[in-house]
Nucleic acid binder design. Structure first.
Lengths: 105, 105
DNA sequence: CATACTATAGCACTGAGTGCCATAGTATGC
DNA sequence: GCATACTATGGCACTCAGTGCTATAGTATG
Protein backbone atom coordinates (compact mmCIF):
# COMPACT_ATOMS: atom_id res chain seq x y z
CA UNK A 1 0.00 0.00 0.00
CA UNK A 2 0.94 3.57 -0.59
CA UNK A 3 0.36 4.40 3.03
CA UNK A 4 3.64 2.78 4.02
CA UNK A 5 5.57 5.51 2.30
CA UNK A 6 4.73 8.54 4.38
CA UNK A 7 5.94 12.09 3.88
CA UNK A 8 8.40 11.89 1.00
CA UNK A 9 6.43 9.87 -1.49
CA UNK A 10 3.17 11.27 -0.25
CA UNK A 11 4.50 14.76 -0.65
CA UNK A 12 5.43 13.99 -4.24
CA UNK A 13 2.03 12.55 -5.00
CA UNK A 14 0.36 15.48 -3.36
CA UNK A 15 2.39 17.87 -5.44
CA UNK A 16 1.38 16.08 -8.61
CA UNK A 17 -2.24 16.10 -7.54
CA UNK A 18 -2.04 19.80 -6.82
CA UNK A 19 -0.65 20.40 -10.29
CA UNK A 20 -3.48 18.43 -11.82
CA UNK A 21 -5.89 20.49 -9.84
CA UNK A 22 -4.34 23.71 -11.02
CA UNK A 23 -4.55 22.63 -14.63
CA UNK A 24 -8.15 21.72 -14.12
CA UNK A 25 -7.89 17.96 -14.29
CA UNK A 26 -9.16 17.42 -10.77
CA UNK A 27 -12.00 19.06 -8.92
CA UNK A 28 -11.71 20.56 -5.45
CA UNK A 29 -13.56 17.75 -3.76
CA UNK A 30 -11.19 15.10 -5.06
CA UNK A 31 -8.25 17.30 -4.25
CA UNK A 32 -9.41 17.40 -0.65
CA UNK A 33 -9.02 13.65 -0.41
CA UNK A 34 -5.38 13.92 -1.27
CA UNK A 35 -4.94 16.71 1.19
CA UNK A 36 -6.43 14.64 3.96
CA UNK A 37 -4.47 11.57 2.95
CA UNK A 38 -1.23 13.51 3.10
CA UNK A 39 -1.93 15.27 6.38
CA UNK A 40 0.84 14.53 8.83
CA UNK A 41 -0.63 12.33 11.51
CA UNK A 42 -0.91 14.22 14.76
CA UNK A 43 1.16 12.85 17.60
CA UNK A 44 0.37 13.01 21.29
CA UNK A 45 1.84 15.79 23.38
CA UNK A 46 3.60 15.29 26.67
CA UNK A 47 2.86 17.60 29.59
CA UNK A 48 6.38 18.99 29.25
CA UNK A 49 5.90 19.78 25.61
CA UNK A 50 2.66 21.60 26.27
CA UNK A 51 4.20 23.69 28.98
CA UNK A 52 7.20 24.49 26.79
CA UNK A 53 4.87 25.45 23.99
CA UNK A 54 2.96 27.86 26.18
CA UNK A 55 6.22 29.30 27.50
CA UNK A 56 7.41 29.83 23.96
CA UNK A 57 4.27 31.80 23.26
CA UNK A 58 4.76 33.79 26.45
CA UNK A 59 1.24 33.34 27.70
CA UNK A 60 -0.18 32.51 31.11
CA UNK A 61 -2.36 29.43 31.47
CA UNK A 62 -5.40 31.68 31.56
CA UNK A 63 -4.53 33.53 28.39
CA UNK A 64 -3.46 30.36 26.65
CA UNK A 65 -6.75 28.75 27.58
CA UNK A 66 -8.68 31.72 26.20
CA UNK A 67 -7.01 31.26 22.83
CA UNK A 68 -7.95 27.61 22.71
CA UNK A 69 -11.44 28.23 24.07
CA UNK A 70 -10.95 25.88 26.99
CA UNK A 71 -10.77 26.46 30.74
CA UNK A 72 -7.57 27.46 32.53
CA UNK A 73 -8.19 24.48 34.76
CA UNK A 74 -7.79 22.16 31.80
CA UNK A 75 -4.53 23.70 30.66
CA UNK A 76 -3.19 23.15 34.16
CA UNK A 77 -4.24 19.51 34.04
CA UNK A 78 -2.61 19.05 30.65
CA UNK A 79 0.67 20.41 31.95
CA UNK A 80 0.59 18.23 35.03
CA UNK A 81 -0.32 15.09 33.14
CA UNK A 82 -3.70 14.72 34.81
CA UNK A 83 -5.53 14.88 31.49
CA UNK A 84 -4.32 14.34 27.99
CA UNK A 85 -5.48 16.42 25.04
CA UNK A 86 -6.76 14.52 22.03
CA UNK A 87 -8.94 14.98 19.03
CA UNK A 88 -9.69 18.61 18.34
CA UNK A 89 -7.69 19.82 21.35
CA UNK A 90 -4.60 18.02 20.16
CA UNK A 91 -5.09 19.40 16.69
CA UNK A 92 -5.33 22.93 18.03
CA UNK A 93 -2.19 22.50 20.10
CA UNK A 94 -0.20 21.21 17.17
CA UNK A 95 -1.51 24.10 15.12
CA UNK A 96 -0.14 26.50 17.71
CA UNK A 97 3.11 24.59 17.70
CA UNK A 98 3.44 24.88 13.96
CA UNK A 99 2.08 28.34 13.34
CA UNK A 100 2.05 30.13 16.66
CA UNK A 101 -0.72 31.49 18.84
CA UNK A 102 -1.55 34.27 16.40
CA UNK A 103 -2.58 31.71 13.82
CA UNK A 104 -5.51 30.56 15.94
CA UNK A 105 -6.66 34.03 17.01
CA UNK B 1 -15.87 47.98 33.55
CA UNK B 2 -14.35 48.04 30.13
CA UNK B 3 -15.74 44.61 29.38
CA UNK B 4 -19.18 46.05 28.72
CA UNK B 5 -17.97 47.68 25.56
CA UNK B 6 -17.18 44.81 23.24
CA UNK B 7 -15.75 44.95 19.73
CA UNK B 8 -15.63 48.64 18.85
CA UNK B 9 -14.02 50.06 21.96
CA UNK B 10 -12.08 46.88 22.50
CA UNK B 11 -10.77 47.06 18.99
CA UNK B 12 -9.60 50.61 19.58
CA UNK B 13 -7.87 49.69 22.83
CA UNK B 14 -6.28 46.71 21.19
CA UNK B 15 -4.97 48.86 18.39
CA UNK B 16 -3.45 51.27 20.87
CA UNK B 17 -1.91 48.41 22.80
CA UNK B 18 -0.46 46.98 19.61
CA UNK B 19 1.09 50.34 18.81
CA UNK B 20 2.63 50.51 22.26
CA UNK B 21 4.01 47.06 21.74
CA UNK B 22 5.52 48.02 18.43
CA UNK B 23 7.20 51.04 19.93
CA UNK B 24 8.57 48.89 22.70
CA UNK B 25 6.50 50.16 25.57
CA UNK B 26 4.84 46.83 26.24
CA UNK B 27 6.32 43.34 26.35
CA UNK B 28 4.90 40.36 24.49
CA UNK B 29 3.46 38.74 27.58
CA UNK B 30 1.39 41.77 28.46
CA UNK B 31 0.37 42.17 24.86
CA UNK B 32 -1.04 38.65 24.95
CA UNK B 33 -3.44 39.68 27.68
CA UNK B 34 -4.93 42.30 25.46
CA UNK B 35 -5.13 39.87 22.60
CA UNK B 36 -7.02 37.36 24.72
CA UNK B 37 -9.24 40.06 26.21
CA UNK B 38 -10.21 41.25 22.75
CA UNK B 39 -10.77 37.82 21.24
CA UNK B 40 -14.24 37.59 19.83
CA UNK B 41 -16.17 35.21 22.03
CA UNK B 42 -16.90 32.01 20.19
CA UNK B 43 -20.54 31.27 19.62
CA UNK B 44 -22.17 27.87 19.39
CA UNK B 45 -22.75 26.29 16.00
CA UNK B 46 -26.01 24.79 14.85
CA UNK B 47 -26.04 21.45 13.02
CA UNK B 48 -27.13 23.29 9.88
CA UNK B 49 -24.25 25.70 10.10
CA UNK B 50 -21.74 22.91 10.48
CA UNK B 51 -23.10 21.05 7.51
CA UNK B 52 -23.13 24.22 5.43
CA UNK B 53 -19.58 24.92 6.46
CA UNK B 54 -18.42 21.48 5.37
CA UNK B 55 -20.32 21.84 2.09
CA UNK B 56 -18.63 25.17 1.49
CA UNK B 57 -15.28 23.47 1.90
CA UNK B 58 -16.36 20.68 -0.43
CA UNK B 59 -15.28 17.86 1.83
CA UNK B 60 -16.92 14.61 2.84
CA UNK B 61 -17.55 13.93 6.51
CA UNK B 62 -14.57 11.60 6.52
CA UNK B 63 -12.19 14.12 5.01
CA UNK B 64 -13.55 16.92 7.15
CA UNK B 65 -13.05 14.80 10.22
CA UNK B 66 -9.46 14.04 9.21
CA UNK B 67 -8.70 17.75 9.10
CA UNK B 68 -10.09 18.30 12.56
CA UNK B 69 -8.51 15.14 13.94
CA UNK B 70 -11.82 13.72 15.08
CA UNK B 71 -13.83 10.69 13.97
CA UNK B 72 -16.22 10.77 11.01
CA UNK B 73 -18.84 9.45 13.40
CA UNK B 74 -18.58 12.62 15.43
CA UNK B 75 -18.97 14.91 12.45
CA UNK B 76 -22.13 13.03 11.57
CA UNK B 77 -23.46 13.51 15.08
CA UNK B 78 -22.66 17.20 14.98
CA UNK B 79 -24.61 17.62 11.78
CA UNK B 80 -27.59 15.71 13.09
CA UNK B 81 -27.65 17.55 16.40
CA UNK B 82 -26.88 14.48 18.43
CA UNK B 83 -23.76 16.05 19.89
CA UNK B 84 -22.69 19.64 20.12
CA UNK B 85 -19.11 20.80 19.62
CA UNK B 86 -17.64 22.98 22.31
CA UNK B 87 -14.30 24.04 23.70
CA UNK B 88 -11.47 23.19 21.37
CA UNK B 89 -13.74 21.58 18.78
CA UNK B 90 -15.84 24.70 18.54
CA UNK B 91 -12.74 26.82 18.27
CA UNK B 92 -11.44 24.69 15.42
CA UNK B 93 -14.74 24.88 13.58
CA UNK B 94 -14.88 28.65 13.87
CA UNK B 95 -11.31 28.76 12.64
CA UNK B 96 -12.32 26.84 9.55
CA UNK B 97 -15.28 29.16 9.13
CA UNK B 98 -13.08 32.23 9.26
CA UNK B 99 -10.01 31.04 7.43
CA UNK B 100 -10.96 27.91 5.53
CA UNK B 101 -9.90 24.30 5.77
CA UNK B 102 -6.43 25.02 4.43
CA UNK B 103 -5.71 27.19 7.44
CA UNK B 104 -5.88 24.22 9.78
CA UNK B 105 -3.93 21.81 7.57
C1' DC C 1 0.29 45.55 54.43
C1' DA C 2 -3.01 44.97 50.72
C1' DT C 3 -4.21 43.82 46.09
C1' DA C 4 -3.91 41.09 42.09
C1' DC C 5 -2.26 37.59 39.06
C1' DT C 6 -0.35 33.11 38.82
C1' DA C 7 -0.51 28.16 39.32
C1' DT C 8 -1.65 23.91 41.86
C1' DA C 9 -4.93 20.84 43.72
C1' DG C 10 -9.11 18.30 44.78
C1' DC C 11 -13.76 16.85 43.92
C1' DA C 12 -18.18 15.92 41.70
C1' DC C 13 -20.33 15.72 37.58
C1' DT C 14 -21.75 15.06 32.67
C1' DG C 15 -21.87 14.76 28.05
C1' DA C 16 -18.49 14.98 24.24
C1' DG C 17 -16.08 11.93 21.79
C1' DT C 18 -14.63 7.02 20.62
C1' DG C 19 -15.19 2.53 18.46
C1' DC C 20 -17.59 -0.76 16.15
C1' DC C 21 -20.97 -2.48 13.22
C1' DA C 22 -25.03 -2.79 10.34
C1' DT C 23 -27.73 -0.47 6.98
C1' DA C 24 -28.81 2.03 2.71
C1' DG C 25 -28.10 5.26 -1.23
C1' DT C 26 -25.39 6.39 -5.10
C1' DA C 27 -21.91 6.20 -8.36
C1' DT C 28 -18.55 3.77 -11.02
C1' DG C 29 -16.85 0.15 -13.81
C1' DC C 30 -16.75 -4.82 -15.48
C1' DG D 1 -27.13 -7.24 -14.76
C1' DC D 2 -23.65 -7.73 -10.70
C1' DA D 3 -19.75 -6.16 -7.91
C1' DT D 4 -17.00 -2.68 -5.69
C1' DA D 5 -16.42 1.47 -3.18
C1' DC D 6 -17.54 5.77 -1.03
C1' DT D 7 -21.02 8.17 1.34
C1' DA D 8 -23.99 9.03 5.27
C1' DT D 9 -27.18 7.51 9.02
C1' DG D 10 -28.11 5.15 13.20
C1' DG D 11 -27.59 2.60 17.38
C1' DC D 12 -25.25 1.07 21.44
C1' DA D 13 -21.80 0.74 25.07
C1' DC D 14 -18.22 2.84 27.08
C1' DT D 15 -14.85 6.17 29.21
C1' DC D 16 -12.36 9.87 30.10
C1' DA D 17 -11.78 14.66 28.59
C1' DG D 18 -13.38 18.72 29.97
C1' DT D 19 -16.27 21.77 33.14
C1' DG D 20 -17.13 24.33 37.31
C1' DC D 21 -16.13 25.65 41.68
C1' DT D 22 -13.33 26.51 45.54
C1' DA D 23 -9.37 26.71 48.48
C1' DT D 24 -4.52 27.33 48.82
C1' DA D 25 0.06 29.38 48.14
C1' DG D 26 3.74 32.00 45.69
C1' DT D 27 5.17 36.20 43.79
C1' DA D 28 5.06 40.72 42.19
C1' DT D 29 3.48 45.48 42.53
C1' DG D 30 2.17 49.80 44.73
Amino acid sequence: MVKKYRSKVMAAIHETAADLHRVGGMDKKTMRKFDALCLTPIQAMTPKKIRALRAREKASQTVFAAYLNVTPSLVSKWERGEKYPQGASLKLLSLVEKKGLEAVA
